[in-house]
């Protein structure tokens, strides 16, 4: 039997009715239409489905949507400023070639967002530990680490997540 669900997704309040067994990742993809959050391993390991729940990184395949009642959810679609452009982490992943196929990238971006919120100047080891819940099968992680380092520097230098220059296009 569907239950009412009230929460905020990327700054927008929503009210839906969902089955208890609906996982948060499926709610985001199928009910909200936010397909940037990917289903990867389906077994709580790869981190491709990482979103922020009240600012904390969570694997959305391992949480029921109803558990997000009253929470603020941020998905990869909520990273970039509303007026266009990219978040500094997105810019850095682009410029440092922090992806190849890109399937894992939304999860890495969200995990890295949480990492930098807690530690604005992480060492390479801290970046590795902060992203240990995310798997990438293309890059070997070197460029991902480089991208997080570059984004951290840009954000410390004052690049506002909401005022990043448009890249490409």
């Amino acid at each position: 039997m569907p239950h009412p669900l009230t929460l905020t997704v990327n700054g927008t309040g929503r009210e839906d009715a969902v089955e208890p067994r609906l996982l948060l990742v499926h709610y985001l993809r199928e009910v909200c239409g936010l397909t940037g959050t990917h289903v990867g391993c389906d077994t709580s390991q790869c981190g491709a489905c990482t979103v922020l729940v009240d600012g904390a990184p969570v694997k959305s395949c391992t949480m029921f949507a109803l558990q997000a009642e009253g929470c603020r959810i941020t998905t990869v679609e909520g990273l970039a400023p509303a007026g266009g452009g990219l978040h500094p982490l997105q810019t850095a992943f682009w410029e440092q070639h922090g992806l190849q196929c890109g399937f894992c990238t939304p999860g890495f971006l969200m995990a890295a967002t949480a990492l930098l919120a807690e530690n604005p100047d992480p060492t390479d080891e801290e970046i590795g530990r902060g992203l240990e819940g995310n798997l990438c099968r293309c890059t070997g992680y070197v460029n991902i680490r480089r991208a997080v380092r570059a984004a951290a520097a840009a954000m410390r230098a004052g690049a506002e997540p909401a005022a990043t220059a448009v890249v490409g296009g």
Binding site: G47, V53, A56, P57, V58, K59
Partner: peptide
């Protein structure tokens, strides 16, 4: 325990 995402929950 686990990884940062697991430790959140």
């Amino acid at each position: 325990v686990g990884d940062p995402q697991v430790r959140s929950r």
